[in-house]
Design a protein around this nucleic acid. Structure first.
Lengths: 219, 219
DNA sequence: ACCTGAACACCGTTCAAGT
DNA sequence: ACCTGAACACCGTTCAAGT
């Protein structure tokens, strides 16, 4: 075939197809040959558009991150109700962030691991930092808030805590694990357990930040 | 050589060598051939001791997790001073947990991702759950606390937030990122920024849990 | 039981050749 | 510029053969 008069591939098409494939079958399902085949093209063609396979994965991760809603940080968010607060914005963002990652769980390791030098990651950092400073947080704390929220949300989206438990009482020898007598019950409700832990943690973080904020404002 | 009269390998020796290799060169450096060579043995020999390469990585992750100090959850911890509290225990554990993971950063993705069905993971869950219930937390909340702490600590150990920023002001176009004018300064102090965000987040979580605990105790 | 070399079906990436 | 097939240097894993 050689060079067609109109390019068969584009970065966008590669990212799109890779994303679908990863959502369906996981990151391990992606090989350059497999992805290329899915695109109707031969393996090495991809290297005309990306330098490495890792770069493709990073681009997919960035595309997912870009879907996270940030509108709650807008200066004029909820102007009518007048109840904007850095705390509710942070909570809403956390929930939206997690929901987006949970919709694309297979790419989360790439997203969480990378240094986050991707454009969408910077856009998030910018929005959070800007909103926190505007709300009265000192810059150093505003930076920390963006970081710690990322730690918590990606950590929660990465691994299921509840999935660690099997639905079999015999698996938990009371000698080894004296307090896990009911642990096998967790297996039945993995989803709720992880969701509950996330909600509890998110609320704790925000309650805790309120305590710190009050201490700062006091001075 | 065929079968030697004394086995050349053991699970322990494989885990140990794999751990050293991963610490030094990362998970990608581990191939079954490379690891076997390091052990003075041929590639397929490993399959007499582990079913898959992934099982080896899981075992290394478990070995790291097993190093995390849990003594702060002991019933008789600090009996002389009498200042044991679930909150300080949780804080100390968080700090110790993160320190251990930071000492072996290359294995953290495996540790954070896996379902945590490994023995060391269960031992952690058991210790935290037991201590929280003993301190007066309802079982459902005690479960959540173990989970949310894991989310936060592994998330913080996985990716550096600060590493996302480069030491170059020109990288942050004010049009794209209106609030990142000082972001290039973060690059210089990655370590402190991430450490500070972790400390802030850990304190916020514990302060927030105190608020919830007070609400529960009140009833 | 525990090691070996050979073999299978893959990989990511490079590169010269085609238009 | 953008695609191709061939090739290189790898992979994880299986398996029959050796003791």
């Amino acid at each position: 075939m050689a060079r067609p008069r109109k390019p068969l591939l584009s970065r966008e098409r590669i990212i799109e197809t890779a994303g679908v494939l990863i959502d369906a079958e996981g990151v391990e399902a992606i090989s350059t040959r497999r992805l290329a085949a899915e695109l109707g093209v031969s393996g090495p063609s991809l290297y005309n558009h990306f330098r490495t396979k890792d770069e493709i994965l990073e681009a997919v991760a960035d595309a997912v991150q870009a879907q996270v809603d940030l509108s709650m940080f807008d200066a004029g968010a909820h102007p009518e109700s007048g109840d904007w607060g850095w705390d509710t914005a942070l909570h809403d963002w956390g929930v939206a962030y997690r929901a987006t990652l949970k919709a694309h769980p297979h790419i989360v390791p790439v997203l969480a691991l990378g240094p986050g030098r991707r454009p969408a990651g910077l856009r998030v950092a910018d929005a959070v930092f800007g909103a926190m400073v505007r709300a009265g947080w000192p810059p150093a704390q505003a930076t920390s808030i963006g970081a710690l929220m990322r730690y918590f949300v990606t950590g929660s989206a990465l691994g299921s805590f509840a999935r660690g438990f099997v639905d079999d009482q015999a698996a938990y020898d009371p000698t080894d694990y004296p307090h896990l007598g009911q642990a096998h019950l967790l297996a039945e409700r993995q989803e709720q357990v992880d969701e509950g832990a996330f909600e509890t943690g998110l609320r704790a973080i925000i309650d805790g930040l309120r305590v710190q904020f009050a201490a700062i404002a006091e001075k």
